[in-house]
């Protein structure tokens, strides 16, 4: 494993190794050891061409706990927001000796362009690309589910998960579908037909337009952020109608299984896809997802960078 561009890059065993490593790292960094020397002398660049404070901070915390040097390269509004210079940026990072680039980019596939071309030799970690994938988010979601619902199992076999909302534009949903099904979970996508991708019937999931039918049947429910601009693109008539059909409110929380957990990748639109009392209910693991994110990203960084440099780069 040289890069983490897509969940497709991971075998089931590799995914489980990341979760296991994250679990061990969580235990030692919650307990005795706050900081590990493992990546001392390694340089990790956070290349964020799109706003995402929480993902950037999470990767930064993970890198620093492993003693890596972190360079933040936030490029919103700079030349990087025009695609022409991604190549130049990559070559600059190469010249600065970046061992890994954590990239968030509005263009689907931008991390693939970084990794596939001979622009730079370091590892590339996809921290969210356009409407394509967000693999580290899916890994932390799977980690959170396994921790709460796994009953000691290595994978998520038999777990029933609903992902609700704007599947069409969601990189979180894409990565989660790939990862959760790889780990044996049954995934149900719940959304208005306008917000489901073309050809979703060929995905290894169940599709439903009716949240109330799905709610009592799941162990975990993941609410996706609805972006305000989707309304202007006529994906649904009004925020109120969306909330009525697809929002998680108190009644729907009460209809959940007693042990079911509520997840959200954040940032939340309280009142639109999730009400405040649902987000803050005892079932919610939304805040814990954030702390799990650091452990999972530490595991990813360790497994990509902790070992010998992989052959095949330009150097």
């Amino acid at each position: 494993m040289k890069h983490l561009l897509s969940i497709n890059d991971l075998s089931r065993d590799e995914a489980i190794l990341i979760l296991d490593t994250a679990a061990e790292l969580a235990r030692i960094s919650d307990g005795p050891m706050k900081k590990l020397p493992t990546l001392r002398g390694r340089t990790i660049v956070n290349l964020f061409a799109e706003d995402s404070t929480r993902t950037r901070i999470s990767f930064e915390a993970a890198a620093k706990r492993l003693s890596a040097d972190v360079i933040n390269f936030s490029a919103k509004g700079s030349s990087l927001s025009k695609g022409e210079s991604l190549k130049d940026t990559a070559q600059t990072l190469q010249a600065m000796g970046a061992d890994a680039v954590v990239i968030r980019h509005p263009a689907s596939g931008a991390p693939f362009r970084l990794a596939d071309n001979q622009w730079m030799s370091g590892a590339v970690i996809n921290a969210g690309d356009g409407t394509h994938e967000h693999p580290s988010q899916a890994l932390l979601d799977a980690y959170t589910m396994r921790k709460h619902l796994g009953k000691g199992a290595k994978d998520l076999a038999g777990l029933r998960v609903a992902i609700v909302g704007d599947i069409l534009h969601s990189r979180v949903a894409r990565s989660n579908v790939l990862l959760l099904t790889k780990l044996g979970a049954h995934v149900t996508l719940v959304a208005p037909p306008t917000l489901l991708p073309f050809g979703v019937d060929s995905w290894p999931v169940t599709v439903s337009y009716d949240l109330d039918l799905v709610i009592p049947q799941v162990d975990a429910i993941m609410m996706l952020r609805i972006q305000q601009e989707r309304m202007h693109e006529i994906f649904f008539p009004s925020a109120r109608e969306y909330s009525r059909y697809f929002g998680l409110n108190r009644d729907r929380v009460n209809a959940l299984n007693p042990n079911a957990i509520i997840m959200h990748p954040g940032p939340m639109n309280r009142g639109l896809e999730i009400t405040a009392d649902a987000a803050d209910s005892a079932r919610s693991v939304i805040v814990e997802q954030v702390s799990n994110g650091v452990s999972v990203r530490m595991a990813i960084l360790y497994l990509l960078l902790g070992g010998a440099p992989i052959e095949g780069g330009i150097n």
Binding site: G83, K87, H105, A107, S108, R113
Partner: peptide
Amino acid sequence: SESKDCEWSVA
């Protein structure tokens, strides 16, 4: 070449 040596969506 620069109009192809970039991300898909801006090419």
